[in-house]
Write a protein that binds this DNA or RNA. Sequence first.
DNA 1: ATGGCTGAGCTACTCAGA
Length: 258
Amino acid sequence: MKISSWNVNSVRARINNVIDYIKIEKPDILLLQEIKTEQINFPSDEFKKLGYMSYVFGQKSYNGVAFLSKIKIDNIKLDFINDDLKQSRIISGDIKLNKKKIKIINIYVPNGNPITTDKYTYKINWLKKFLKSIKKKLVDEKNIVIAGDFNIIPEEIDVYDHTKYMNDALFKIEIRKIFRELLNYGFKDIYRLINKTKQEYTFWDYMAGSWQKNYGMRIDHFLVSDNLLENIKSIVINKKPRSKIKPSDHTPIEIEFI
DNA sequence: ATGGCTGAGCTACTCAGA
C-alpha cells in the first residue's frame, strides 16, 4: 500500500498538478495539506473520476486538510485536538493493512513565524495539545501513522543553511525538542531512519530562486509507530512535482507499506 | 540583499505562508 503526503498550497489552484501526480504515482491514499478551501468547493468530482473518495476538513482561504483514497477510511475525525482558533489542521481515520487496523493522522502544523508574535505561542500550544492527544491514543492504539506538513526542521542536516534558522519557528530548539518528545512516545521519522545521512528536502521557497539553488528544507514527514516498522517497504521524497509548471512550494513524500 | 513569490478574497490590497 502506497501512501503519499503533499502540501499542495491550494487544491484548486493546483488541480492539474494533483491530477497528473495521481495518474503517474497512483497512491492508494493521498494526504493533502493547505487545501485552502471549504468542503463545498473541494474538487471531489474530479478525484472521483480517477477512483478516489474525498474526506475533507476544509476552511475558507487558509489551512485545510483532506484524504483522497481508493480504499474506504473509517472513523473520520476532525476534532483530534481542540484548536482555540478553530483552524482546519487535522483529519484522522482508520484503515486496514492486512489484519492490522491503522490510524492515519494527517496534520498541518502551524508555521509559527514570527517568533515574537502570538503565532509562535499558538504553534507551541497546538503542538503540546497534539502530543497530549497522541499520548492518550497510544493507550489503546499501537498502530499509528502521523504524516503531513510538520513545519519542523528536525536537525541541522534537514536545511540548506541551519545557521540562518536558529531563531526561526521551524528550527528553534524548543520546537525541535517537542518533535523529539513525540518520537520518544514510540515513533520513527521514517525518512531519516532509512536515510541516515542523505540531504533531501520537501520544501523550497518560491522566492529568490530557492528551487534552482536547492535552498530547501525537510519539513514534511512520516512518523510511524514502532509496531508498524516491520511493515515498511520504502520511503521516497518525490521531487518531480516541484519542478513542474505552477508547482506547490512543497513536494510529495511517499511511503510504501507491505 | 528583510528582498522576493504565490494564493485567496465582497478585485485592491492585505494577509498568510516558511
